[in-house]
Each structure stands twice: as structure tokens, then as C-alpha cells.
Design a protein around this nucleic acid. Sequence first.
DNA 1: TACACAATGTTATAATATAACATTAACCTA
DNA 2: TAGGTTAATGTTATATTATAACATTGTGTA
Lengths: 135, 135
Amino acid sequence: MRISKVNKMHNLSKNQQIIFDLIDKSSEPLKAYAILFNVQKKGIKAPLQVYRALDKLVEIGKIHKIESRNAFIACQNSSCQVAKATAFSICEICEKVTEISSAGLSKYLANFKDKDGMKYSKYNLEFFGLCKKCR
Amino acid sequence: MRISKVNKMHNLSKNQQIIFDLIDKSSEPLKAYAILFNVQKKGIKAPLQVYRALDKLVEIGKIHKIESRNAFIACQNSSCQVAKATAFSICEICEKVTEISSAGLSKYLANFKDKDGMKYSKYNLEFFGLCKKCR
DNA sequence: TACACAATGTTATAATATAACATTAACCTA
DNA sequence: TAGGTTAATGTTATATTATAACATTGTGTA
Ligand SMILES: [Zn+2]
Ligand SMILES: [Zn+2]
Ligand SMILES: [Zn+2]
Ligand SMILES: [Zn+2]
């Protein structure tokens, strides 16, 4: 396998890199229009440019969407290669979001079968409560 | 405890009842503006009237929001008195949504502790896959 | 080179949700 | 049953989130 192939696996384009860097260095989930505002100085002017980069970054697992907040967070779990099994804790006061990395939880959910015996390979779980600081 | 008190627990107002009835008889999750369109003949004319009823219905657990779809579904689980622990399966082809009612799952999630030993009383879980019909 | 595909740029618009303020209904209790 | 309180409603305007459509440019590969 050549270097170029290795890189290609998750080689980010210019816009993708700009937007990923912003999300990755943020201490909190970012919303699409907050991202847009922050990257306008870098030449990204339109919502669609942001959403396209976000879509791709979600697809390859570099970021995740917090569905209940319409916001995006960098993957905090180096093993998330694909956006297919995600779990988060969300503080209902300060809105701090943490990606949960629990082998037990992911094993349990990956093996969960519903009443019809159906197994699901993809899921998103959001826990809500109060973080340490807010209790 | 008087009758009025018993009823009051989940006595729906006029708009709440209209909107709940619509969602309850629907075979699929409904979006807010689809609801608005459907209840305009009943005198509900503005988005805010719909969103206010939806907020209340979610709060008391009569309906749930499918976060990944921005849509609302009637509670299919008679024991959901409050919107605090929900789980759904979602077909990625036909978009059929089913509320999962599994004692094992809810027990596991209610008892789940993160790395810091934190327990969460509230969660939302969405599984994705293909339903029987779509496989 | 030439092809295929991914990414970009741009304008416009769709879809989802809330702010602000005035009014009315329902409920509780003195 | 009058008065106070809270919940719900009505209405207009606006904020926020997301996509359609189409033209163009870059990138890797045969
Ligand atoms: Zn991750
Ligand atoms: Zn907190
Ligand atoms: Zn339910
Ligand atoms: Zn299906």
C-alpha cells in the first residue's frame, strides 16, 4: 500500500481541514452557523460550504453530530473510524458534551436485539444529566 | 384524590388534544410543519401553536421527538409517563420508526455509569438499520 | 491526455424553531 | 365568588438550521 493510498483514506480537503481544525480545538460542540462565522476570514462564505464539509467529516467519523443540539464535536475516541456507533453525555446546565468510550456499552448495544430478533449495527445514544461541576 | 386531580395529571388542552390525536393516528413520525398543515382546518394557524403543544406533549411523555429526523411519534409504550428514557429503531430505507420497549435495555442504560462513575437518569437512543420489509 | 469523481463557489430558497407581546382560560384559595 | 396565579392561546415577525440547483475547479487514475 503506497503512502498516497494511506493518506487518501482520510485526507482532508482544504475546507474540510479548516472546519475540522476549528471543531477539534473547540472545547464545546459547535453549530453550523457559528462555524461559518468563524471561518469566513478563511474564505468560506456560504452555509453550503460548511454543511458539505460537515457531512463529509461526519461520514468518515472525524466528527459527530449531537442530534439533540444540532451541533458538532470532534471525535474524542481514536477508534471511531466511521460514524456508526456513538454515545455521549450531555450536561443539561452547562451543555458540556463528552463522548463516552465504554467497551461494555458498545458491546451491549452492538449485540442488542429487538423483539423481532433484529440487530442494529448503527446507533446514537445521548445521555442527559448534570456534570460534576454543575451538581 | 379527587377526579379533577386525577384527570389533571395529563388532561390535554384543546390544541394539545388536536395535535396528539393527529400524531397518535399517524402510522409514521410527523414533522411540525406537516402537523401544522393538517390542523389548519381546525383553527391552528401558526407554527408556534404547534410547537407549544408539541413541547408540552413531549414533556408529559405522550409523544417523543425523533431527534435525528426532527419528527414526532406517539408513545407506543404505555409506561412512558415522562420523556426521560427513550429508545427507537429507525429503518434507513422506509423511515419506519418503532419505539423499543425492552426491560433489559432500559435497565442496562438506567444503571450505566461512565468513567467518572456518573449515572444518568435520562437518555435517548436511536438504532438504525433495515426493517424486515426492507431487507 | 483523458476520464471519472470529489470538492468548490455561488445564489436562492426551504425547513425548522423561537422571540415578543397581548389576551383568554383554568385553577386554587381566601 | 372574588381575586390572584399559572397555563394556554393568538398573532406577527424573525431567527436558526439546512438544502436545491447549477456552474466550475481540483485530484487521482488509466
Ligand atoms: Zn467518536
Ligand atoms: Zn455542567
Ligand atoms: Zn414512550
Ligand atoms: Zn424499512
